[in-house]
Each structure stands twice: as structure tokens, then as C-alpha cells.
Amino acid sequence: MSLTSSDIARIAKLARLELPAAEAERMRTQLNDFFGIVEKMRAVDTAGIEPLEHPVATFQDIALRLREDRVSEPNQREANQQNAPALERGLFLVPKVIE
């Protein structure tokens, strides 16, 4: 399989990345190099194998830890917004969202 420039454009849009033509072309070559080494992997017979999402799960049962329903986060708006690019009256500002 080999990625076309339209594949690159589609993926870049999904990822919200802007790739000028030259960069997109270099990206296409590099990704195709990479997927060259991926081909081996696709051929492996994995019938009946469970995917492994959490590494330690091969070794012991893991279960989601649950927290008691308690409120313990005070209002820290100032500290939490200190890095915000655009603020007004405590709201984060973004270019108009059109629904």
C-alpha cells in the first residue's frame, strides 16, 4: 500500500495540520518509507489473539479504580487560565463558532 497526496490531505485535515505542498510531499515520502517497514507486521497471523491495551494486563487482572463521589476541587480559575491566549470575563475566546 502507498499513501497518495490526497490521503495526506485527508489525514492532515483530520489532524488539523496545515501542510504546504512541499511539506506535504516530503511527509508523503517519509510516511511511505515508514509503512514499508509496517508491511511485515500486517502479514502476521493474529487469529484468536486478544489486543493488549494495558501492558500489565498480560501479568495480572486489571480493573478501573473508582473514586468516591466527592467535590474537592476549589475554584482556581485564575491559576488555570494563566496560560490562556484569549480571555474575556472568565470565558475563553475563539473565532466565531458557526452551528
Partner: peptide, 28 residues
């Protein structure tokens, strides 16, 4: 950017099973 592109692609519709899921199986 390269890794975001690879990651976005292998999770995208129609490629998830062939790449991401297959990788997680071999991971096991």
C-alpha cells in the same frame, strides 16, 4: 507532525483493524 499524521491515519476509518488493532494483538 509526522507521528500525529501516522497516528491519525492508523486510527482512521477503514485502517483501524489493519494497523492499530493488529499492532495491539502482536503487542500481546
Amino acid at each position: 507532525k509526522r507521528r500525529i499524521m501516522i497516528g491519525t491515519y492508523v486510527l482512521s476509518h477503514g485502517y483501524y483493524d489493519a494497523y492499530y488493532l493488529q499492532a495491539q494483538k502482536i503487542r500481546r
